[in-house]
């Protein structure tokens, strides 16, 4: 299977460690992937507030570019995932819209056929790689660490757009395969508050703090997230959110967790870029 890697804005800048680790994992897994310099922002469901047609056109253009290369899109940002799936659904449900978007795309020499598949990195691991293959690549098991999955909203909801009912808690399986102990964590499907970080920082950080406090309550030593945006709130802004001065909770991107267990060096996984120190894992 061939993929076009769609990192999202955060993966390319603020949380570059998640992209670095993901690329490393894709290489180890032998996945045929490419980054496309022509991909634009997906609009993040925010552009549609001002101009829904433009957001749709942005996504249709990206889809057409991937189709041109015969690749499916794989992303490490939940919000990119949801926005792309939402656009794809809108185009699939409305023949007139589909036609109109293609008329516009024709002007720039592209065509959207509707064949490209859009996947999250987590889904790619689950459906195209499989737990067995991942397990076979694990070299050093991470022992005695209690890890809680933090999925984030846009890989789960809304169900009519995401429609992914194959395996609701695959990260826990990956945690287990890596040797750590998956924790039953009450906030695993809840919101980190990222999307209102600039609009209302106080409220956003209270949401982040709630997730962190509950991580302590549920005795998780660490959080693992598949989303670059959750990574920003939980890791980069943890210091600002942690008003109660609780002990820090390190946050790993999914690729970093797998990489550590696959024996990839901390450097190659960008662990030095995580704001909350993950040192306890480096020499486990």
């Amino acid at each position: 299977m061939k993929y076009a890697l769609y990192p999202g804005c955060a993966g390319e800048a603020t949380t570059e460690e998640s992209l670095k680790a993901t690329i490393k994992i894709l290489e180890v897994l032998g996945v045929d992937f490419e980054e496309n310099e022509a991909f634009s922002c997906c609009g993040a469901g925010i552009v549609e507030e001002e101009d829904a047609e433009f957001e749709l056109a942005l996504n249709a253009r990206n889809f057409a570019l991937a189709e041109q290369d015969g690749r499916d899109i794989v992303t490490i940002c939940n919000t990119c995932l949801m926005t792309m799936l939402k656009s794809q659904k809108a185009l699939a449900d409305d023949a007139k819209l589909f036609e109109q978007v293609n008329e516009d795309l024709k002007e720039i020499g592209l065509e959207y056929k509707g064949t490209v598949k859009i996947k999250h990195f987590l889904w790619m691991l689950r459906d195209d790689i499989g737990l067995e293959k991942i397990e076979s690549l694990i070299k050093t098991k991470i022992k005695d660490v209690r890890m809680a999955p933090f999925y984030g909203c846009h890989i789960i909801r809304p169900a009519d757009v995401i429609s992914d009912d194959k395996e609701p808690d695959f990260i826990s399986k990956l945690i287990k395969v890596c040797g750590a102990l998956p924790v039953e964590y009450r906030d695993k499907y809840n919101c980190c508050g990222f999307h209102i970080l600039l609009a209302d920082e106080d409220t956003s950080l209270k949401m982040t703090q709630k997730c962190l406090t509950n991580a302590h309550e549920d005795e998780a030593d660490m959080l693992v997230t598949p989303c670059t945006l959750c990574h920003i709130s939980l890791d980069c802004y943890q210091g600002r959110a942690n008003k109660a001065k609780l002990p820090e909770v390190p946050v790993l991107h999914l690729g970093q967790l797998l990489g550590l267990a696959m024996g990839i060096t901390a450097d190659e996984l960008g662990l030095d870029k995580n704001v909350i120190s993950t040192e306890q894992l480096i020499n486990y």
Binding site: G45, C153, H154, P158, C191, F194, D200
Partner: peptide, 15 residues
Amino acid sequence: SEMIWICARCNSCIE
């Protein structure tokens, strides 16, 4: 109102 801008789009209500 500033309030209309602080929906975090977690989509829980939609579900």
